[in-house]
Amino acid sequence: MLEIKNLHVKLEEEDKQILKGVDLTVEAGKVHAIMGPNGSGKSTLSYVLSGREGYEVTDGEATLLGEDILDMDPEERAAAGLFLAFQYPVEIPGVGNMTFLRTAVNAQRKARGEEEMSSTEFLKVIRERAKELKIDADMLKRPVNVGFSGGEKKRNEILQMAMLEPKMCILDETDSGLDVDAMKLVADGVNALRSEGRGFLVITHYQRLLDHIVPDVVHIMSDGRIVKTGGPELALEVEKNGYTDIVEEVA
């Protein structure tokens, strides 16, 4: 599904190398988790994959379903099936949540040469999915993320994911800022989307989320590299002992 090879990334504006050779493969149907200390480059990886400006790939490659994505525009990557749930979802005053989502769904369909979703069908689907995530009608009408609480913003990300039905989902700390019940809602939302043809890359600091979304593989990122890969037990080890041991072990 997603293949990252020897990815090196620096900031465009300054001479600062952030990713220093990331190798990672997420297979279809699998959930991979990435943990790692603050500033190790997890969000940077997710941004580079989704096409945000400000980064320069100096070496390596990334493909989605065999297609090189690094030269694509962000909207092309989205249409190809990539989705990033932002660590910090952006507020967009003046653009209604519903309008935004319908525009996005239909833009992706159009780009893929598929038929657009009618507004009645869209309404029906979004109402269902929103209900599952306990997002009320009022939140759908409000401008995108404006005045949403931290937890509401994260649930809204999952709603977008559920509507867009991407093939490869990257979740950047979707659990941070969530209360216990909301965490459960979000995890259920993600689990509902788990399927044969879909891959997940879940960035988190906490084992707690991984109790609900049980990963197949856990990676530890440190200083711009994946330094250790293992099964779900690796997350438990981090929870207990922190990163120091792991990072020192590989250094």
Binding site: S50, G51, R52, E53, D73, P74, E75, R77, A78, A79, F83, L84, F86, P89, V90, E91, I92, V95, T99, F100, L101, T103, A104, V105, A107, Q108, A111, V144, Q160, L164
Partner: peptide, 18 residues
């Protein structure tokens, strides 16, 4: 905001117009 919209698949010009 522009990147956020584009990351959801909204083309650059449509996102700018929105």
């Amino acid at each position: 905001a522009l990147f956020y919209l584009r990351s959801r698949g909204v083309p650059h010009s449509d996102a700018t117009n929105l």
